[in-house]
Amino acid sequence: MKKVPGPIHGSTEGNNVMLLIPCPHCGLRDQTEFSYCGDATVTRPATPEDADDAAWIEYLYMRDNPKGPHDELWQHVHGCRQLLRVGRDVTNHEIKAEDPS
């Protein structure tokens, strides 16, 4: 027989609320106020003309697509219209608040 679990005590720290998207300006807001803008780790070559084809293709098309924590950009389109970097675990959609910098 497997263990008989006792009562489960969820955190009372408001963890669920932390799963809303934290706009560094406007606060925790519903996902419907935002639009997704892709992988935040993708960096556009500073001087594209100096990038070779491989580097440019890497920027345009290749993605890490990690299964786990994912650094991504969201835009608060129905709010302050700022783009924000969000750390989100794509296996369960949990969001870690980001520094507004």
Partner: peptide, 8 residues
């Protein structure tokens, strides 16, 4: 069998 944050 496992904790779910915020859910008891």
């Amino acid at each position: 069998d496992t904790d779910v944050p915020g859910l008891e």
